[in-house]
């Protein structure tokens, strides 16, 4: 895996030509959007003038306004769609392969819903499942796969006038990472952010013991780890075999570095990790110049963050029977 240090020269030689091309394309698509928006807003203004002239109710003014705004949004989507695709297929793919040539990138791909569910990290019923930016490959001895995911469920409510309204609630949104774990195991161990114990202390721990939707509660001896996480598993010894004292420290450090909730599951000899990162990774910013080293470095840092989990958790140490 490559680091940020030598990136400057790679940027100068390999990425600049791509960026120049993309920058032209970006300006072109922005210009098209601008022209489209001017035309749409012009028509909307004429319509508004007509409405005012015909002295219709001022509420009618909302009609050209709403339709105009929707059309401008549509034009934005239409004229930037190709650029976004090109951006991901050229720049982002290059940046990912700079980090490791074995990594394959599928902009429209995602971790399958089946895999997401088999991690057992989130038990809520899923009504909408979306994702993008799938990366897979092998870092030294460890196979990895990750993508952005957004899983939601919906509820409907009826207001006093009898109108039905649908609400979408996020189950998980962020980076979902799967890696081949370096030890063999048969059961299931999940590591979840700890909220009950933080709030209620010892009583919280008791409540966790009675959590019927999860396996047995496993009390770890690392006090700092126990404060941040709660562990459930099918086997007390296997959970500790997986979560060695060293790995617990590494997970804790990773959590502190990320500063967002981290869920982990060890199932089917694989490691599943759900990191609730807020930002949308690998997306171009349309209103800013992309011919800028700092911006490209941000993309690189996002890739390294995900791929670096292998090193962060020491997954390439293969001194046990699993090679």
């Amino acid at each position: 895996m490559k680091s940020i240090e030598n990136f400057r020269s790679y940027y100068n030689t390999e990425l600049q030509p791509i960026l120049k091309e993309l920058e032209e394309e970006r300006i072109g698509s922005m210009r098209k959007t601008g022209i489209g928006a001017t035309v749409i807003l012009g028509i909307a203004a004429i319509l508004a003038a007509f409405i005012l002239n015909a002295s219709l109710s001022p509420v009618a003014l909302l009609i050209p306004l709403v339709i105009g705004a929707a059309l401008v949004g549509g034009a934005w989507w239409l004229f930037t769609k190709d650029f976004k695709q090109h951006f991901k297929n050229s720049l982002i793919r290059q940046v990912i392969q700079y980090v490791d040539p074995s990594l394959a990138y599928t902009p429209a791909g995602k971790i399958s819903r089946y895999e997401f569910e088999s991690s057992t990290l989130f038990k809520h019923r899923i009504d909408r499942y979306r994702g993008e930016d799938l990366v897979d490959g092998q870092i030294d001895k460890t196979k990895i796969r990750f993508s952005e995911l957004h899983a939601e469920y919906k509820t409907t409510s009826t207001d006093s006038k009898g109108r039905r309204k649908t609400h979408w609630h996020t189950i998980f949104k962020g980076l979902f990472f799967i890696a081949d774990f370096n030890k063999h195991f048969h059961g299931r161990t999940v590591v979840l952010p700890d909220s009950a114990e933080k709030l209620f202390g010892r009583l919280g721990k008791k409540l966790q013991e009675w959590n019927l939707s999860r396996d047995d509660l496993i009390n770890m001896e690392d006090v700092d780890f126990e404060k941040e996480f709660v562990v459930y598993g099918t086997d007390q010894i296997e959970a500790r075999y997986i979560l060695s004292t060293a790995l617990m420290r590494r997970i804790l450090e990773f959590k502190r570095k990320m500063k967002v909730p981290v869920h982990m599951a060890f199932v089917n000899s694989d490691l599943y990790m759900a990191i609730s990162i807020k930002k949308n990774m690998f997306e171009p910013r349309l209103l800013r110049k992309i011919l800028d080293f700092e911006i490209v470095r941000d993309y690189l840092e996002d890739v390294i963050l995900a791929v670096g989990i292998v090193e962060d958790l020491n997954l390439n140490t293969r001194i046990w029977t699993k090679e």
């Binding site: 770890m220 500790r240 075999y241 060695s244 046990w320």
Partner: peptide, 17 residues
């Protein structure tokens, strides 16, 4: 290595119990 690691896990499980 594996047995030693498992042994350490079993000891820790015993101590937790």
């Amino acid at each position: 290595n594996e047995v030693e690691e498992q042994l350490s896990a079993a000891r820790r499980a015993f101590n937790a119990a």
